[in-house]
């Protein structure tokens, strides 16, 4: 009987500890840090970017203490599931495949995709025009998926980070990149190394749903917390304050 009591007490104690942890006063947030202007690391080692600022604003709104954990894109969902952090704020587009593994908050922005190629490139953006051409994408992003499905005769070259893709475009190893229009403009075209490159074709709206915050499925309370915080900062103008720092247009989308 005594043993049973101890066990019961232990279980009660454990579940109490769990309840306390679920107050979400401390949230660890996974970020990528290689996707300017959304997320990058300064030479001093500081994380900066739209994702980072939005994350800080959301945490302020939720009155939670946030800690950032930098994680490469390839392992960003597995690390969430392995509890290395509690939420991913890394410009992650909401897709059906990802929804099988994680839950998403409402979107916090939605930007189109576009092709970048050397200035004066005669590339025609169509299944025929891209036949046999090399298109660089970041591995298993919505851009990778879109290019793989829509340009079956093109060679899709996949990179671990967007920065590596920029390097190979400059080296001439790929004919064009398909990527987020905003990331491409601020992270590459506006920089000195992007001077000889330009957007080609029209912007493509790849995702209806936009980018959201990914959270483990069982943490439904955290999803709700983030949803409320997103709605709050949209309403009280803090979202626009951050967005204005980075973009001259409405990044939130319709």
């Amino acid at each position: 009987m005594k043993k049973l009591l101890t066990v019961t007490a232990l279980v009660a104690g454990l579940s109490m500890a769990q309840v306390q942890a679920k107050d979400w006063n401390n949230i660890r947030i996974g970020v990528e840090g290689a996707y300017p202007p959304f997320s990058s690391v300064t030479p001093e080692g500081e994380l900066v970017g739209f994702d980072i600022d939005i994350a800080k604003t959301l945490c302020e709104q939720m009155q939670a203490k946030c800690e950032f954990v930098k994680q490469d894109w390839d392992g960003i969902i597995p690390a969430l599931l392995a509890r290395k952090y509690d939420a991913i704020i890394a410009s992650m587009s909401i897709t059906e495949e990802r929804k099988k593994k994680v839950a998403f908050s409402d979107k916090y922005y939605n930007s189109p995709a576009e092709f970048i190629a050397p200035k004066g490139s005669s590339l025609v953006i169509s299944a025929d025009g891209l036949k046999g051409k090399k298109i660089g994408v970041q591995r298993e992003t919505i851009h990778d998926k879109y290019a793989t499905e829509h340009y079956p005769d093109a060679e899709i070259v996949r990179y671990g980070t967007q920065d590596e893709a920029y390097l190979d475009l400059q080296a001439g190893r790929v004919d064009a990149l398909l990527l987020d229009a905003v990331a491409g403009e601020d992270g590459f075209l506006k920089k000195p190394e992007g001077a000889n490159y330009a957007f080609i074709g029209e912007p493509i709206q790849l995702s209806e749903e936009g980018a959201g915050i990914a959270i483990r499925k069982q943490d439904t309370d955290l999803v709700e917390k983030f949803n409320k915080a997103i709605a709050d900062i949209r309403a009280n103008g803090k979202y626009d304050e951050v967005a204005k720092k980075y973009f001259s247009f409405d990044i939130y989308g319709k």
């Binding site: 599931l81 591995r139 070259v157 996949r158 990179y159």
Partner: peptide
């Protein structure tokens, strides 16, 4: 696999990132 080749490890990275099943 790191320089975009789909060797045995590159394929594993591809499959991992497609299904999130490392």
């Amino acid at each position: 696999g790191i320089i975009t080749l789909n060797d045995l490890t590159g394929v594993a990275r591809l499959v991992n990132s497609r299904y999130y099943s490392p």
